[in-house]
Amino acid sequence: MIPAPKTAPILEFKNVSKAYSNGDSTQKVLHGVNLSVYPGDFCAITGPSGSGKSTFLNLCALLDEPSAGEIFFNDQATSGLTESALSMLRKKNVGMVFQQYCLLPYRSVLENVLFRFRYLEVDKAEALRMAKYALAKVGMSSFLDKPTHLLSGGEMQRVGIARAIALKPRLLVADEPTGNLDSSAAKQVMRCLNDLGQQEDIAILLVTHNESLLDYASRHLRCKDGNLIEHETA
């Protein structure tokens, strides 16, 4: 079931295509994708390897530019924005969670979450408060000073989620966040994401191969041959 729009979409794709040129040949990855994502949406994206899921996710996170079409972020057209403007939009509004966690090995749990503020000018006390709040949200408050290499996979991923939400983003993009976790840890992470989406009104886009995790999502998007098809969730 497609939920009724609550407010204006946070992210809107209008006829977006993406192609990569490799010398003389051009490989089309996405064809004319249309999509609106609203605050509080939890979209699970599935599809076979090479179907364009990661490309779609990079476009959502403003890390890549479409070959054709337009992406609106918070009602603002992103084409034509300078690199620094895109970077500003991304750092204030988009949180990212990675399959391999991408934690800094020489820093503690708290320092890794504080790294979210690395490229922002922010009051230190305020950043500390926000980082601790984010860690509390994912149940990692008791691990503040622990080096990240001593954590389990599930714990590392929760630190990655805390880093992503520390700045209260409007959009959270997660690329196979449970791909390296056992089923118990994966469920824990999914519950964590689900709660965040509902409590913090964050729109979540999650790529997964694990069909059993679709129950946590409010929307299911299937990527096939460069097209994004919306399926009804159970």
Partner: peptide, 16 residues
């Protein structure tokens, strides 16, 4: 490279 990707994802510019 992944750290560079992380930094870019967190808002680092090419100059950073």
């Amino acid at each position: 490279i992944s750290e560079i990707g992380l930094r870019r994802a967190l808002g680092a510019t090419e100059m950073d």
